[in-house]
Simulated scan of single mutants.
Amino acid sequence: MSVKKMPPGRAAARTAAIISATHTLLREVGYEQLSIDAVAARAGASKTTIYRRWPDKRSLVCAALLDRSKATAELPATAVSLREDLIALVTALTALAAQEDTPGFVSLLAAAQKDPVIADTLRGGALATQQRNCRDVVQRAIGRGELKDPAVTDVLFDLILGRALVRHMIQGRPFSVDAQTEFVDTVLLPVLHAGGQGAWGVRRS
């Protein structure tokens, strides 16, 4: 007996509903408490439909993380200075951090400590666009003669994402436009011009 295939449009809508339900439940209950049963109920889909596409919870969550990364735009290469590029980069990463729900994000970080697949997805998939943005900003600055060392890319990414997450998740304070600009002028530019080592002992690993 052959299995009747779902029309492409309906299949895409069902997939989108499942991914959306996964995002919602990650925010509400975190990774450990998320279950395929709950995703199926929230998405209005059968567990069979989910398992046909994703064999387990981990693969479904990883797919949801990668799906979210697709909505992250790459920075346009129109800036005329490193400072202008950095302001745009901080704005983009701040917006990304503001989308995160603290319990859900913390649960993913905890899962990543035990599961290398989730860790790799967080590093190489969900944050890949922003990592490329950092690399491109540094490369453009090198091309303009503003920087020399491409290795500062990792320092740049760590500093911006760390600052944005601390403001949003730990301090619970908005990272205003003025505060972002001050961060660029007083932290990022001095550290980058120092080759990755600033007044706070920031070094490349």
Rank of each mutant, 00 (worst) to 15 (best):
M1V: 03
S2T: 01
S2F: 00
V3S: 07
K5A: 15
M6A: 12
M6W: 09
P7F: 03
P8V: 06
P8T: 07
G9A: 08
G9M: 02
A12W: 11
R14H: 04
A16T: 12
I18P: 06
I18R: 11
S20I: 13
S20L: 13
S20P: 00
L25V: 13
L26Q: 07
R27G: 13
R27C: 10
V29A: 07
G30L: 15
Y31E: 02
Y31V: 07
Y31I: 04
L34N: 06
S35Y: 01
V39G: 11
A40Y: 06
A41C: 10
A41R: 01
R42Q: 15
G44P: 15
A45L: 14
T48Y: 01
R52G: 05
R53E: 10
R53K: 14
W54G: 00
W54A: 00
P55Y: 05
D56K: 02
K57L: 04
S59D: 07
L60F: 00
V61W: 14
V61T: 12
V61G: 12
C62Q: 13
A63Y: 15
L65T: 10
L65H: 10
L65M: 07
R68E: 13
S69L: 07
T72P: 01
A73C: 10
E74Y: 11
L75Y: 05
P76E: 08
A77G: 02
T78Q: 08
S81M: 04
L82A: 04
R83D: 00
R83W: 11
R83F: 07
V90W: 12
T91A: 04
L93A: 15
T94D: 05
T94M: 11
A95V: 04
A98S: 06
D101G: 08
T102C: 11
T102V: 07
G104M: 08
F105E: 11
F105Q: 12
V106G: 09
S107Q: 15
S107D: 07
S107F: 14
L108C: 04
L108Q: 02
A111C: 10
A111S: 12
A112K: 09
A112H: 12
A112M: 12
I118R: 12
I118S: 13
T121Y: 09
T121Q: 05
R123K: 03
G124Y: 15
R132G: 12
R132E: 02
N133K: 00
C134S: 05
C134A: 11
D136R: 05
V137L: 03
Q139P: 01
Q139M: 01
R140Y: 10
G143F: 01
R144N: 08
R144K: 07
G145F: 06
E146Q: 11
L147I: 02
L147R: 02
L147E: 03
D149C: 13
D149A: 10
A151F: 04
T153M: 06
V155Q: 14
L159D: 04
I160E: 06
G162V: 08
R163M: 15
L165F: 01
L165C: 02
H168Q: 05
H168M: 05
M169S: 09
I170E: 09
I170T: 08
Q171R: 13
G172I: 07
G172Y: 12
R173Q: 02
P174W: 03
P174Q: 09
S176E: 11
S176G: 14
T181W: 04
E182K: 06
E182Y: 15
D185E: 10
V187L: 01
P190Y: 06
P190C: 09
A194E: 08
G195I: 05
W200P: 00
W200T: 09
G201Y: 10
S205K: 10
